Computed example of a mutant assay.
Amino acid sequence: MNFSLNQIDLNLLVVFDALMRDRHVTRAGESIGLSQPATSNALARLRYLTKDELFIRAKSGLQPTPVAIALAQQIQPALQQIQIALSSAESFEPMTSDRVFAIGMTDYVEFVMLPPLLEKLEQIAPHAKIQIRTGDRQQLFDLLDNGKVDLICGVFPEQIPWHQEQLLFQEQFVCVCRQNHSLIKDSLSLEEYLATSHLLISIKEDMVGRVDTLLAKQTLSRNITISIPHFLVAPSILARSDLIATLAKRVANSFAQDLHLKVFPCPITIDGFSVFMRWHQSTRNHTTHKWLRNILAATAISI
């Protein structure tokens, strides 16, 4: 497909991007201010230009063809770069700006980072607004790559060439149980750890965690009574049962006093994890993005 730019209505690229994002003609049109007939007409013109169907109807919505997927890999970054180039000319004054910053975070990072972040913003950017988007690791990557968020924060072991990142903080694991636990008193031995029942937090929604893999290497095992996908309810469950859980230290310490929980070092060696913020390389020199990254980095130092 060889075209001269003066032969193409570049607005069609905006329609194409919306269709890739929403996979629905009506919703895509609404997101860019077009009616359903106008969006359908634009899709017909795109099909004529590319000599390809581009999108095929399916039960789950419009499914892109291989040609559409290949085009999106070029068009989406180009549109994002144009948007950044246009917005970079805008002045940014933190004390008066009412800009909405979109940040992708896991629920753990929300819990740890948002309270001190909002406290800081009240002082230096009182009119700024924060929109939090959440999801698993791949969903956060998609939000970032599609320009739905300014940056993302979480645990990201995978390296992606067009992402840049900065370490925010490191975390370690501890063991938590209620103060009047029937078995565990003033210390926690490996024998006691294995003898009691466990609560597991698993985003995969299964009954096996990192600890179980480590124990299996030593021909040991533990009894998992309940597995939950989110950590916030865990401290309340621990406070009302004889379960024990292996939790991130910052979470455990936050709940320990109010819920009468005891916190112990883990009786097995388990590596902690590092929390990073990531941004698309196309925003690396954008003044407002750099300001946001600096604020998050400063917030991380304080937690």
Rank of each mutant, 00 (worst) to 15 (best):
G104T: 06
E192V: 00
I103K: 09
S221L: 03
F55N: 03
I56P: 00
R99V: 09
L259I: 06
S35N: 05
T225Q: 15
D136Y: 01
V275P: 08
T283N: 11
A58K: 09
T283Q: 14
H230N: 13
D212G: 08
K204H: 14
S236R: 11
L200K: 08
R222Y: 04
Q73V: 08
Q36K: 04
L121R: 10
A125P: 10
L296V: 12
Q76T: 13
L247E: 07
R27G: 00
S40C: 06
L114T: 04
T246Q: 15
T50Q: 02
Q138V: 05
Y108D: 03
N41H: 14
L121T: 04
I56Y: 02
Y193W: 07
R284D: 11
D98S: 12
I84V: 12
L62P: 02
Q166K: 15
H260M: 12
L168M: 11
H24R: 02
T287F: 13
P64H: 05
L199H: 06
N146G: 10
L10M: 13
I160N: 07
V174K: 05
G104N: 08
F55S: 01
W291H: 06
R23P: 00
S60A: 12
L214H: 14
T39E: 01
D150S: 12
I184H: 01
V109Y: 09
F16Y: 09
E165C: 07
V25G: 00
Q80A: 10
G154T: 03
V174H: 03
Q166R: 09
F111V: 01
D212Y: 07
L144N: 04
L167M: 12
V112W: 11
D17N: 13
A72I: 06
L43P: 01
A300P: 03
C177Q: 00
L86T: 08
Y48H: 08
I132L: 06
S31N: 13
A298I: 07
L194V: 07
R57G: 05
P161A: 12
S91T: 14
V251C: 13
K217R: 15
P66A: 11
L183F: 03
N11P: 00
I203N: 11
P235I: 09
H24I: 00
A44N: 12
R23N: 03
A252V: 00
Q172S: 15
S227A: 15
H280Y: 04
I268A: 11
I301M: 07
I75E: 14
L151V: 02
K262E: 08
E53F: 04
I244N: 03
E90C: 10
I103A: 11
A42I: 00
T39K: 02
L215K: 05
V109H: 09
